[in-house]
Design a protein around this nucleic acid. Sequence first.
DNA 1: TGGGATTTGTTCGTATGTATG
DNA 2: ACATACATACGAACAAATCCC
Lengths: 295, 295
Amino acid sequence: MARTTPRRWRDIATDLLQRIEAGDLSPGDGSSGRRRLPPEKDLESYYGASRNTVRDALSWLQQQGFVVSEQGKGTFVVHRPNIVHVTLSAAELGLAPGNRSGQWYNRDAFIPASREVTVSPVKVEVQEGTKVIARYLQTNPGSEFVSRHQELFLDERPWALQTSFYPLSFATEGASRLLYPRDIPEGAVAYLGETLGYSEVGFHDEIRARIPDENEKRFFNLGDSAADVVFETVRTAYSPDGKAFRLTVTVWPADRTRLHYNNGKVPDDVLRTPGLGPSDHAPRESPPADDAGSG
Amino acid sequence: MARTTPRRWRDIATDLLQRIEAGDLSPGDGSSGRRRLPPEKDLESYYGASRNTVRDALSWLQQQGFVVSEQGKGTFVVHRPNIVHVTLSAAELGLAPGNRSGQWYNRDAFIPASREVTVSPVKVEVQEGTKVIARYLQTNPGSEFVSRHQELFLDERPWALQTSFYPLSFATEGASRLLYPRDIPEGAVAYLGETLGYSEVGFHDEIRARIPDENEKRFFNLGDSAADVVFETVRTAYSPDGKAFRLTVTVWPADRTRLHYNNGKVPDDVLRTPGLGPSDHAPRESPPADDAGSG
DNA sequence: TGGGATTTGTTCGTATGTATG
DNA sequence: ACATACATACGAACAAATCCC
């Protein structure tokens, strides 16, 4: 039945999605490697709908993360980058010593070998701690902290944004290098051990998913689609006396990141290659249905 | 002067967001406890813009998760539920025995005491494993699995969707209760220990964030906004001989869930009350700016 | 370098459909 | 049955970014 009833844009979106996933769009393309959809005017005549209706369909596809539109250029199929698997369990619990099939970044994140981690210069700030930071680090609200911020790249691509907080007193009582905007090659934890005698005997991680802020959108190249969210992990490190002495906040783009934790005895191959290799299944939003409900 | 320049909807969205967060909208409301925005027609005259432009603004607010529109009823400020903190580290590593300030659900998830977990009836299916399941459980693609699916509620509210997979051979070789759609009070792991001698000596977790499918949207009452994403945790449990014998996939609504992991020695109060209590800071999308960019 | 064509972005106007109360 | 309110759809014009000759 010819539905003069609404939902015209859903039909168009469904059909476009099908054509996108079948790959039969813009056959003779290849300009910048991105697949391009026909211009709105063409879709208008192809589907016999008004431009606004076509735009409603494209808008839904964009919101769901399937396409992205760029003024003056066109609408393009979104290319989702490869998944990066990051292991966050402690180094001590996981790999046998001498294992060379992976590397730890900052003793916090384990990634497969053969991938290269590069970092931006450290940006150091001294700030009054927010209530949240003070609570995590068990200090008085209003006390000062050193924050050390870095942009992390994996194979030259944006990978994570990381900020560590330390009580300012650490820097004034021996660990002065915390204040210098330079990398600490041996790692901040080891340095705090040498200078102040701290050692990390445990940590607590809190994981959330949220919408990125403008800065994160720029760095990770994220848009407004529902697929463009970030993980935020907050790691609190504890010394033997139960004092929190480091707070590290890391932000990861969730569309290309999987977080892994190991606990207890886990086979070596799982430790080495989390995610298990080949193609990752990617269950996305199901095609628009009139009403998927069964009650 | 009628400004013909673009971005009219951004101005409206910014202003509406400000009014929402200031709380000065629909002063005399209270019908169902939800704050309601003025109808589109009113906003049309209030801002001196066309209805379509007002709708563009509302559409953005909805996409960002600030409001939700319901046909025939109105547009309402979104009420984000309280955050639930869930600890996923193994029971053995964490709490001292006899600690009564919390409870483990299924030995997998630790939540504060005083909250009540209820579960739906178990839905049991026997299915050919997907490639992914077979890979995780180290079996041949095409072999059969028992899946046990449950809806979990916390204080009567939807909390998580959980599905566990076991090789069908487990059920045919002694652990027949896996096939019955009834709860296994002592826990499936303990039951597999009694019947088949399996014990869980370690596990591996993989965490992702993704857009919910239609079923998850219904269960968790999620919409299409970018704030409406879910965590999916995949837990693989290992026995002493390194064999994976259980695969549990759990889906959590990310807007009201924080995941926690402990590792090593962590103070007791952190173990007991992850999230540290009072109000959770909720950095959301910053108000729309003309262009936050510098390049 | 310029200028016109292409393509998406924004805004307005209008009409009708559908859900709610 | 009627009014309210959001959803869908069409048509039209101009703005802004990009592309191309």
